[in-house]
């Protein structure tokens, strides 16, 4: 067992964990933060995307011990109560989600993209989100959602 101290969604967490525990399992199993999803076992689908120290990362591909001393934001930490972040609201506005399973990872990836490229072109959006697979939307409305969130268009 190894002790880690990590700030998750603004709360400091101190835990004794197995060194082979994945971050996504810490979130889902130990902390009941089930908004972060698991869609594959090869770090390809991006459903588990969270932010570590402000950068998008696939939580299935990070050991929990690696986030010792870091701050982690999950989809549950993106906005409070009935509020939605600009990106979350834009996804709703543009119908950028259907079954909702890839959505938390997609929103986290889009939020990261916009923090680095505030006014992305369509090509930059498509390249920026290619680490996240959506099987429902064909990406058309996801691209539109990111354009709305970046203030470049309305519906």
């Amino acid at each position: 067992m190894t002790e880690i101290v990590v700030e998750i969604n603004g709360r400091s967490i101190r835990r004794q964990i197995e060194p082979n525990l994945l971050l996504v399992d810490l979130l889902r199993q130990d902390l009941d933060l089930t908004g972060t999803h698991v869609g594959c076992d090869t770090a390809q689908c991006g459903a588990c995307t969270v932010h570590i120290d402000g950068h998008a990362a696939k939580a299935c591909n990070v050991l929990a011990v690696q986030v010792d001393g870091s701050y982690v934001t999950t989809i549950e930490g993106l906005s409070r109560g009935n509020d939605m972040s600009v990106v979350q609201a834009a996804f709703k506005e543009a119908h950028g989600l259907q079954c909702g399973f890839c959505t938390p990872g997609m929103v986290m990836a889009a939020t990261d993209l916009l923090s680095k490229t505030p006014k992305p072109t369509e090509a930059e959006i498509r390249t920026g989100l290619k680490g996240n697979i959506c099987r429902c939307t064909g990406y058309h409305n996801i691209v539109k959602a990111v354009q709305i969130a970046s203030g470049q268009t309305t519906v």
Partner: peptide, 19 residues
């Protein structure tokens, strides 16, 4: 009409079987 199910999905509050 905008979808009423979107709020829970966008907030990470969907309840899937593995949850």
């Amino acid at each position: 009409v905008k979808r009423r199910e979107d709020f829970r999905f966008l907030k990470g509050l969907g309840r899937y079987t593995d949850d």
